[in-house]
Simulated scan of single mutants.
Amino acid sequence: MSNILIIKHGSLGDIAQASGAIQDIYENHKKDQIHLLTTKPYFELFKKNPFIHNVILDKRLSKFNLIYLYQLTRILKNFNFEKIYDLQNSSRTTFYKNILFTKAKSDKWSSSETTLPIDILKIEFDRKPVLNRFDHQLKTSGTKTEHTMKPNFNWAVTNINNIKQEFNLDKYIVLFPFCSAHLTHKKWPHYNELIGLIKIKYGDQIKVVVAPGPSEIDDAKNINAVSILDKGKALDISQLASLINESSFVIANDTGPAHMTAHLGVKGIALFGKHTTAFKVSIERENFKAIQVDDLEKLSAGKVLEKILI
């Protein structure tokens, strides 16, 4: 039995996307122990993943913090990993490779860099859809893929019956009108108008809710929808996954919850401006689609309403 390491620091949407790759790594190493290196926001979540035996916390302190780097390196080297799958593919994880396995090839350290096709530059390779990149990385490293192209995030769900009872949730639509403060170009500005149209069309047949993150609770007061919280606090990731999973439909900006919805197999749509494409981020699935426009400001609430399928 060997020790296998997967590195996946975040973000939320990326973790949902990587679920299939993680499952394929497990399936290819049935006799081995699968360890995963991640950051604090996702440490407890990954403990629920049935394809991971052990989760290791990376505090991601400064690269110049030599004491921390020494401690982390010592922890990782003690496992004597047979193979490392870098699913983060960041400058930081490349830095880790240069500390741990400077000359390692794809048979030892699997990353988009060590598996890069010989006829393409990395900047060009990174323009390909994210799931295709994962698929190429694993196959080039000798790992058979069955689930990479069709991630399943259902391992993350939990029981939220108490929350559904508290807010009297039966048939409901979830909106995700928020985004990070530095990514306001992803934000569609017409959610309240859409809510009005939904109420006209469906009346009391369906409830419209939002699930704000910790920094979005105050902003949620400006949205004309029921704000779903757990004892006044934001839902954790598993609760959020369950709220999405049991919903009738989801409408979201291009954020983590949109990717969660896509890979939970739930019906919904993501609203994209020109910042990227739905194709590149591999978000469209059988039940989850995207509306792509050059200017989100000009995307009307009526146009979005037409895409709601309940």
Rank of each mutant, 00 (worst) to 15 (best):
L116G: 02
P117W: 04
P117Y: 04
I118S: 12
I118V: 15
I120W: 01
L121M: 14
L121H: 08
K122Y: 07
K122P: 03
I123E: 09
F125V: 15
F125D: 11
D126L: 15
R127P: 05
R127F: 10
R127W: 10
K128P: 10
K128T: 12
P129W: 06
L131P: 02
L131E: 06
L131Q: 04
L131H: 09
N132P: 03
N132W: 06
R133G: 12
R133H: 08
R133D: 10
F134V: 15
F134E: 01
D135V: 06
D135M: 06
D135R: 12
H136A: 08
H136M: 07
Q137R: 06
L138N: 04
L138D: 04
K139R: 14
K139W: 11
T140R: 14
S141E: 09
S141V: 02
G142M: 09
G142R: 15
T143V: 09
T143A: 05
K144M: 10
K144I: 15
K144E: 05
T145M: 05
T145I: 13
E146G: 13
E146W: 09
H147A: 15
T148K: 01
T148V: 09
T148W: 06
T148Y: 07
M149V: 11
M149Q: 13
M149A: 07
F153C: 09
F153D: 00
F153N: 02
N154V: 11
N154P: 01
W155D: 01
A156F: 06
A156M: 10
A156C: 13
V157Q: 03
T158D: 04
I160E: 00
N161H: 11
N162F: 14
I163A: 02
I163C: 03
K164F: 12
K164L: 12
Q165A: 10
E166I: 07
E166V: 05
F167L: 03
N168A: 08
L169R: 00
L169S: 03
D170L: 14
K171S: 10
Y172Q: 01
Y172C: 03
V174F: 02
V174T: 10
L175A: 03
L175D: 02
P177H: 10
P177Q: 06
P177K: 05
P177V: 00
F178D: 02
S180R: 13
S180K: 14
S180F: 12
A181T: 12
L183V: 08
L183T: 15
T184Q: 15
H185Q: 13
K187C: 06
K187A: 07
W188M: 13
P189W: 07
P189E: 07
H190P: 02
H190K: 07
H190Q: 06
Y191I: 01
N192L: 04
N192Q: 05
E193T: 11
L194D: 01
L194T: 02
L194F: 12
L194E: 01
L194N: 01
L194V: 09
I195M: 01
G196E: 07
L197F: 15
I198Y: 00
I198C: 00
K199E: 13
K199F: 07
K199Q: 11
I200E: 12
I200Q: 10
I200G: 00
K201F: 00
Y202A: 09
G203W: 03
G203N: 08
D204N: 12
Q205A: 13
I206S: 05
K207F: 05
V208N: 00
V208P: 00
V208W: 00
V209L: 05
V209S: 02
